[in-house]
Simulated scan of single mutants.
Amino acid sequence: MAVSGPPTLRQRRLGAELRKLRERAGLSSTAGAAHIGVQQARMSMIEAGRHGVSADRVRALASAYDCDDNGLVEALAAMTGRRGRGWWDEYRELLPAALVGVAELEASATALRVGVVVTMPGLVQTVEHARAAFRQSVPALHPHEIEHRVSFRVKRQAVLFGQPLTSYTAIVHEAALHMRAGTPEVMRDQLRHLIEMSERENVDIFVVPFDRVDFPASGQPITYACGAVPQLDTVLLDSDHGCDFLDAEAQLGRYRSVLDRMESCALSAGKSRDFMHRVAKDL
Rank of each mutant, 00 (worst) to 15 (best):
G122R: 06
Y168V: 00
Q163T: 09
T110S: 10
R180E: 02
V117Q: 10
M179P: 02
A132N: 13
R153I: 03
F152S: 05
H142R: 15
P143R: 03
R149D: 02
F134E: 15
E145D: 15
S137W: 05
L165T: 13
E145C: 11
V127I: 14
I146L: 04
V114K: 06
L160K: 07
A158L: 07
L112S: 04
P139V: 05
G122Q: 07
I171W: 00
V116R: 06
M187R: 05
F134H: 11
F161V: 06
E185F: 09
S108I: 04
Q163Y: 01
T169A: 09
M120E: 08
Q190H: 09
R135D: 12
P139L: 04
G122H: 04
L123V: 04
L141T: 10
G162R: 15
R180I: 00
V159I: 07
I171V: 14
A175S: 09
G162Q: 13
L112N: 01
E128Q: 14
A132T: 09
V186L: 12
K155A: 15
P143M: 03
P143N: 05
V150W: 03
L112H: 05
P139F: 00
T169K: 07
M187D: 10
H178C: 04
A111N: 13
L165G: 12
Y168S: 06
V186E: 13
K155W: 02
H142V: 04
E145M: 10
M187E: 07
S151A: 14
H144M: 08
R156Y: 01
E147M: 10
A132Q: 14
R113N: 10
A133R: 08
E174Q: 08
P164N: 03
G115Q: 12
M187K: 02
T126S: 15
L177H: 10
T169N: 01
E147C: 09
P143I: 03
I171N: 06
T166E: 05
V124D: 12
A158Q: 10
L165Y: 11
H129P: 08
L177A: 11
V154N: 08
L177F: 08
M120K: 03
R135P: 09
H178M: 06
A109W: 02
E174D: 04
E128S: 15
V159E: 05
R188V: 09
T166W: 01
Q125T: 08
F152H: 06
V154K: 14
R188I: 10
S167Y: 09
L177T: 08
R180W: 00
I171H: 08
K155Q: 14
I146W: 01
F152P: 02
V154C: 09
H129C: 11
T183K: 11
R131G: 14
V138N: 02
F161G: 02
H173L: 04
T166P: 01
A175I: 00
F161H: 12
A133T: 02
V150D: 04
S151I: 01
H148E: 14
E145H: 10
T119W: 04
V114S: 14
E174H: 04
L112K: 03
H178L: 06
V172S: 13
A109S: 13
